[in-house]
Design a binder for these strands. Structure first.
Lengths: 211, 211
DNA sequence: AAATAAATAGACCGATCGTCTTTGAAAGTC
DNA sequence: GACTTTCAAAGACGATCGGTCTATTTATTT
């Protein structure tokens, strides 16, 4: 729209303005999350994703430079989605801070149940796979955890202010501990095909907070 | 040796009495643990294991019926190894119960450091992979956790008796929680390439116990 | 030596990997 | 409408690796 200086407008079809929304691309990403949360990165085949979406291979490598690039974008999307979901719960002022965290874990449990405990956390999955993954993922995954952790920590700070948890609590450490254990719980719930681990850890964590 | 009734002892080399110890077989299993704790089951190739040991493929399928059978045996070995290691720490009467658990986590941390945080827990790895693995692994892995959990629970019972933890504690649940979080900590330590997660969770868990 | 089993050796084929080249459709200018 | 350029779709391609199977060599006995 802001074509102030059209200088030498060339003939032929003009390039797309940046990466506009594209239906095929989006469905590839959607299917990617579904499959990678179930099987991880290495075991997930491009072909499988393509088959599910009904798109030929050429399209994939038109939209994404490589499987690695695809994965990077998936993680980014997934991280952002959960960051906003976290905020939706953890910044909900109608509830006391610790109940917000509980609301988040409950929501996550519903999510796992909805997919019959077959899908885990994309970030956790890829973290586990670092032994095989391109090293470039490591920093990205660490950053995601750092971000999620910060959001939880903020909520815990509020809990401290409101007196729900002790004055001396180190909210950063506690938030880190939450994610360490929560990812473990997801992993276990997947293995068990049951939500018990999620509740067990959430209960223990919240009880431990109140001391 | 107990060939009481040699009935019709045939000519030629006699069949081996059961599965006797075999050097090649053992080194395949050793290498298998090393590689699978780093890369998991699906991403670990038979060829890679064979190359490391310097053994041709024929030997592998002489000793093991399939990759799946190989994995099953690996898990069995690994589980037994850790069961005995757990006992060594958790039944050590020279220490109060909770300090025994701490001794175990410290030992595990050393182990991870020794391998530069590249190797995780075989059982955790395969659990994460259930999305791709032969379904037969699921029960085996669950059973291993159940076994490890029972050993921790026993230790916690002692802690209850000695008054280290509250009279009302549900040791089974607590032990389950320990393994849920501990596996999460291993996963995270692997991603971080650092032991922080291990300490963080161990501290939180033990503190939570004492209430 | 003859017989039998253990262990080694690698050929084999199907599947899947990720990339690349080619073709067709769409969207503009002249 | 002819031409040009980009977007997107198709699928060919070579390489790797999966697990299995047949054949050969080595060991141990009558």
């Amino acid at each position: 729209m802001t074509n102030m200086d059209i200088k030498t407008r060339r003939r032929g079809r003009p390039p797309k303005e940046a990466a506009g929304y594209n239906e095929t691309r989006e469905s590839l990403l959607r299917a990617g999350v579904e499959i990678l949360t179930e099987k991880g990165f290495s075991s997930a085949g491009i072909d499988e994703i393509l088959r599910r979406v009904g798109v030929p291979k050429g399209s994939f490598y038109h939209f994404f430079g490589s499987k690695e690039a695809f994965g990077t974008e998936l993680v980014g999307r997934y991280a952002a989605y959960f960051a906003s979901k976290l905020d939706r719960f953890l910044l909900d002022n109608t509830l006391p801070p610790l109940q917000r965290l509980r609301a988040f874990t409950n929501d996550a449990r519903s999510g796992m149940a909805r997919h019959e405990y077959r899908r885990g956390c994309l970030v956790g999955n890829l973290g586990q796979e670092m032994g095989t993954l391109p090293e470039s993922f490591r920093e990205q995954l660490k950053a995601v955890f750092h971000d999620w952790q910060a959001r939880v920590a903020r909520c815990l700070e509020e809990a401290k202010t409101s007196g729900e948890i002790g004055e001396m609590s180190d909210c950063q450490q506690l938030a880190a501990t939450f994610w360490i254990g929560w990812e473990g719980a997801i992993l276990r719930a997947k293995l068990d095909g049951a939500p018990d681990a999620l509740d067990l850890f959430a209960d223990f964590f919240l009880a431990g907070l109140r001391k």
